[in-house]
Structure formats: C-alpha cells, structure tokens
Simulated scan of single mutants.
Amino acid sequence: MVDHRQRRDELIDVVWRLIVEDGLAGITIRRVAERSGWSSGAVRHYLPTREAILDAAAQRVAELIEERIKAVDASAPPLDALVAVLAAVLPTDEQIQRASLVWLAFVGQAASDAGLADAQGILYRDLNQLLVELLTMLAAMGFQVDGGPASAAVELQAMLDGLTVHVLLGRVDADAAQEVLRAAVNRLLTRPPEADG
C-alpha cells in the first residue's frame, strides 16, 4: 500500500534541496520531476502547481519549527522557556539549517512577489502569534514587558531573524546567538519581585 504522506514528504525534500541549491526561481514541476526521478504526472498528483509546491515547502518549514518549539520544556522557568522557544528556531543542526535556508529564499523573493509574500507570511505570522501569546502570559504573571507584548514580539522576532542569517553565514555561532537572545529577553522583561525564573 502506498503511503501518500510519505511520498509527498519525499517530494518536499526534493523541493527543499532545489531551493537551497538554486533558489525559488528554478522551482518547476519539471525540475522537481527530474530531480526526484518521478514523472511530471506523478509530481502533479501530490503537488499540482508551482504555487502548491512552494506552499508545501513553506508549510514544511513551519511544521518543523512548530515541532521544535513543542519540544521545549514547558516546566522551565518562564524566561528560560521563552529563550528556549527562540533558540529552537536558530539553525543549530543540519535539518533546521536547511529549513532556515529555505526560509531565507522565501524572504529574499517575497519583497517582489505577492504570492511568495503570502507563503512566507505563514512562517512570520505563526511565530509572531506564539511570541505575543507567551509575552502576554508573562505579563499576566506580573512581568513588565517593555513596549507591551506585541511590540516586544516584533523586536524579538526581528532579532531572531537577523541572528539566523548571521549563524547561517558563520558570522555568529549558535551559542553566542542564544546568549544575545537571552540578553534581549532580560532587557525586554522585568521580573516581578516574587518571580523565581
């Protein structure tokens, strides 16, 4: 019996490799078929259009980030948990490095392509919403959030985006990037007197 999810995932892996190697411009059903060894018809069965291919690639990045964030220890002290959520997105291993390179390809093209901006928006909105929720929860616990949760979420996400690029380029190592994130969290949040984390 054919595992359709597995076969679709195999195609998305091929798409990711093509994006990392050649950027988004070269992504076509024909190129995916050639690289995967499948017929164009078989590719179209799972990913019927170029837009579907790109949406699936972006969605896989979002899923990977979500998995990594869900693996964060929810019982950790609140500020440590927030830093861990941010650090989970940093390109610290091969899988998240590839995902980050795919994300970066989307970001690079999104400024001039409204369709790609929508696909890349998935990645931005989901993480931004999570950060706002975490910061709002910390505010409810008595932490003072500089500028409010929405503003602090944007600042942390912008810093995370920049650090991701620096780590990918080898300008900053992952440990140093995590320390920068921790310093930013400590700067943006003031602990209530009774808080222990």
Rank of each mutant, 00 (worst) to 15 (best):
V14W: 01
W103M: 04
Q59W: 02
E66Y: 13
Q129G: 15
D146C: 15
R187Q: 13
S112C: 04
R50Q: 06
A139T: 04
R35I: 02
Y124C: 10
W103C: 02
R171E: 13
G108A: 03
E67M: 14
L163C: 09
A119S: 07
I122K: 08
G26L: 09
E10I: 00
Y124E: 12
R187N: 13
T92I: 15
L127N: 02
D93P: 09
A42V: 07
T136R: 06
V43W: 10
M1S: 13
Q120T: 05
D9S: 10
Q129W: 13
A58C: 00
R60M: 04
A74Q: 11
L156T: 05
L18T: 03
L116H: 06
R98P: 14
L181M: 06
G170W: 03
M159V: 08
A42W: 01
D146F: 14
G142H: 10
P192Q: 11
Q129P: 15
D80K: 10
E66F: 13
D55G: 07
W16Q: 02
W38P: 01
A183H: 14
S39C: 12
Y46R: 12
A88K: 00
Y124K: 11
R8G: 04
D126A: 11
R50Y: 07
G37L: 12
A153W: 08
A184I: 08
D3Q: 05
A176Q: 04
L169E: 13
A99I: 06
A152M: 13
W16R: 03
A174R: 01
V32L: 01
G170N: 05
P192M: 06
V43F: 10
L181K: 00
G197D: 14
R60K: 11
T28D: 03
D80C: 12
G170H: 04
A195P: 14
A111I: 14
L24V: 08
V61F: 00
D73R: 09
D9C: 04
I122G: 07
L101E: 02
Q97D: 09
V172E: 09
D196Y: 14
A183K: 14
A174H: 04
L18Y: 02
A114P: 15
F106I: 08
P91M: 04
F143G: 01
G162S: 07
A25Y: 07
M141N: 15
G170Q: 05
G147C: 07
A88G: 01
I27K: 07
L156P: 05
A114R: 13
E66Q: 13
V185G: 09
G170K: 04
D22P: 00
W103H: 06
Q59K: 06
W103I: 02
V107C: 10
A74D: 11
A81M: 09
A84W: 05
A183E: 15
S151C: 09
L189D: 05
D175N: 06
V2L: 04
S39D: 12
V61Q: 01
E155N: 09
D93R: 07
A176S: 10
N128D: 12
E51L: 09
P149I: 05
T190A: 12
G115Q: 10
A139W: 06
F143T: 01
V145I: 13
L18P: 02
L64E: 08
V154P: 05
L134S: 07
M159F: 05
